[in-house]
């Protein structure tokens, strides 16, 4: 398993991108899969850095990953107090649509094959199978 450690600063997310995303592309994952993986990675990193570690640059985020022909596996660990992901309200409910926060976890789940939390919420594991069809193509029609 490869790993990269970053400080809890927004600019540090790029270090994780630069380590992972070229490998994902080189492994032949589709453009849509690359988009999905990057999106989920960004959301998980933001959660770890700003919610988990509270934006404290002294606290680290450990990213472990493996990229192979079958799947992309990413495990992100922070040093915060943890949280219960079940307490996050559904952001797609009518009454929550105008709230600016709370969409990160649902986006990870929508785009990845598997998302799981461990260590009281301090660790999230993201898996994208090569044959993953998520998100279900909706091909929505824009207003015109």
């Amino acid at each position: 398993m490869k790993q990269v450690t970053i400080a809890s600063r927004a600019s540090q997310a790029r270090k994780a991108h630069d380590a992972l995303m070229p490998e994902v592309a080189a492994a032949g994952y589709s453009g849509d899969s690359q988009f999905a993986i990057r999106l989920a990675l960004d959301e998980a990193l933001a959660n770890a850095m700003f919610h988990g570690n509270g934006g404290d640059p002294a606290k680290r985020v450990l990213v472990e990953y493996e990229i192979n022909d079958e799947l992309v596996y990413i495990k992100i660990q922070d040093e915060g107090h943890g949280f219960n992901p079940k307490t996050i309200p559904d952001p797609t409910l009518e009454e929550n649509l105008c709230k600016p926060n709370g969409r990160g976890i649902m986006l990870m789940k929508a785009y990845m094959s598997e998302v799981s939390f461990d260590d009281l919420g301090r660790c999230v594991t993201l898996i994208k199978n090569r044959n993953c069809k998520r998100p279900v193509a909706s091909h929505p029609t824009q207003q015109d």
Binding site: L97, R103, M106, P140, Q143
Partner: peptide
């Protein structure tokens, strides 16, 4: 289309008025 899908998944396509181009 990839970004639009993010709006659709989060149902924010219902909240925002989204158009194909500036003219419309």
């Amino acid at each position: 289309p990839q970004i639009y899908e993010v709006f659709a998944i989060t149902k924010l396509d219902k909240l925002f008025k989204i158009y194909e181009d500036s003219e419309k």
